[in-house]
Amino acid sequence: MSDKNVVKMSPFQAGGKLIATIVILVALVLLGTQSFTIISAGHSGVVLQLGAVQPKVLQEGMHFKIPFIQTVVPMEVRVQKSEMSQTSASRDLQTVSTTIAVNHHLDAENVNKLYQQVGLEYNSRIVDPAIAESFKAVTAQYTAEELVSKRSEVSQKVKEVLHKKLSNYNIILDEINIREFTFSDEFNRAIESKQVAEQQALKSKLDLERIKIEKEQEITRAEAQAQALRLQKQEVTPELIQLRQIEAQLEAIRKWDGKLPSVTGGATPFINVGTK
């Protein structure tokens, strides 16, 4: 081939061809990256096609999507914790405060519905208000004292009410934890006074029971002594009296030291105890 048939490209033409090649390669790479999406562990993907929520929900792993037409919004479906302080009124109009910790997670198969109805701010829009409403609705059914004595029952009722509210938005309630209730200073003083009065009443009752028992014991002892005296009186006979006298004289003889009394007159400590 002669040099006359070789078409030489100008530097400008060569540069334009190189740029075109680079643009095509970049477009292919961009097209490839836009054709796939990866859903991380603990998430589900909401598919949007030209802004419209699609019925299919993507789970963990790599998925194909239509480039520039479809976008995927990842939503976390792991257990989340919402903790907030709450103040409400009891049935007897006492102010009660506590802190509630709620564990919940999104329904992995229906995150598209939640996204369509609420969006990504479901905690502030749905979860927090539902916790407050459920707590107030339940505490209004109990007196302040019942809230303390029936704490497990109150917690279970709050859980039931909250579960119903959250399930309407495809949010699943796992567990709740209600910390110790606190009341106003006036109510605390009233409770303390009541406890003191109950303790004093219990002490008085125990004292009365003790006095009653002691009285019954004294009556029992007195009756026993009276019965013993009656029995002894029934058993006293002339022969018993004579026997007691002889026993007393024998005891005096055993104790005599052999000396006669120094006082003249009177009887000696001996009597005739011989046979008649």
Rank of each mutant, 00 (worst) to 15 (best):
K4Q: 11
M9E: 11
M9H: 04
F12V: 10
F12K: 15
A14M: 02
A14Y: 02
L18W: 07
L18H: 07
I22N: 05
I24T: 10
L28G: 14
L28E: 13
V29G: 13
T33H: 13
T33K: 13
F36V: 15
I38D: 13
S40L: 12
A41W: 05
H43Q: 12
G45M: 03
V46I: 03
V46M: 03
V47W: 05
Q49F: 06
L50K: 15
L50I: 11
G51T: 05
G51Y: 06
V53K: 02
V53W: 01
Q54F: 06
Q54D: 05
Q54V: 05
P55T: 05
L58N: 04
Q59C: 04
E60D: 05
G61L: 02
G61H: 03
H63S: 05
K65Q: 11
I66A: 12
F68R: 09
Q70C: 07
V77G: 00
V79R: 09
V79H: 08
V79C: 03
V79K: 09
S82D: 09
M84Q: 15
Q86M: 11
Q86N: 11
Q86F: 07
S90Y: 00
S90G: 02
S90A: 03
V96C: 06
T99Y: 01
A101N: 06
N103T: 04
H104A: 02
L106I: 01
D107Y: 00
D107N: 01
A108D: 03
E109V: 05
E121C: 07
E121A: 10
Y122Q: 10
I126A: 07
D128T: 14
P129N: 03
T139A: 03
T139I: 02
A140R: 04
Y142N: 00
A144Q: 03
L147R: 00
K150P: 09
R151D: 01
S152A: 09
S152D: 02
E153P: 00
V154D: 00
S155T: 01
L162Q: 00
K165H: 02
L166F: 00
N170H: 04
I171E: 00
L173Q: 00
R179T: 04
F181D: 01
F181C: 01
T182Q: 11
F187L: 04
N188W: 06
A190C: 05
S193C: 07
K194S: 14
Q195Y: 08
Q200L: 14
A201L: 12
K203N: 14
K205W: 11
L206G: 10
D207I: 07
L208A: 14
E209G: 08
K212M: 06
I213V: 10
I213F: 11
I213Y: 07
E216Q: 08
Q217R: 11
E223W: 12
A226Q: 14
A226N: 10
Q227N: 10
L231A: 14
Q232Y: 07
V236R: 15
V236S: 07
T237R: 08
E239A: 08
E239T: 08
L240Y: 11
E251Q: 12
K259A: 14
K259H: 14
L260R: 15
L260A: 15
V263Q: 15
V263T: 15
G265I: 03
G265V: 03
A267E: 13
A267N: 15
A267G: 14
P269R: 15
F270K: 13
I271F: 08
N272I: 12
G274T: 15
G274D: 07
